[in-house]
Amino acid sequence: MTAELGRQPWLVYGLFRTAQGSSPSVHAGTVLFTLMGFCGLYLVLGVLFLFLIGREIAHGPGALAPVAGGGAEVAHV
């Protein structure tokens, strides 16, 4: 965010302005819609991630189990 906002109004510093680089054929409404779509998608992904991580933590690590080839290793559950 700092890098992107700090560089404005340049897309390529000193060479290419953001206004010159935006697509003339893509409308603001379309961009807003897809931005909301991405936010929604990543929100769902984030919630699912927390749910799965929470389950994993609640479950705790597996018992020490002997693994073929010798030695004891924590079994991945």
Partner: peptide, 28 residues
């Protein structure tokens, strides 16, 4: 990319959803 903007975003959403499905399916 500009002309097919929305179609390409739809493709991206499908690719993302498909990846999540493959990775998450067998965890529960």
């Amino acid at each position: 990319i500009s002309g097919f903007y929305f179609a390409i975003v739809l493709v991206l959403w499908c690719l993302i959803g498909r990846g999540i499905a493959i990775e998450f399916r067998s965890h529960v």
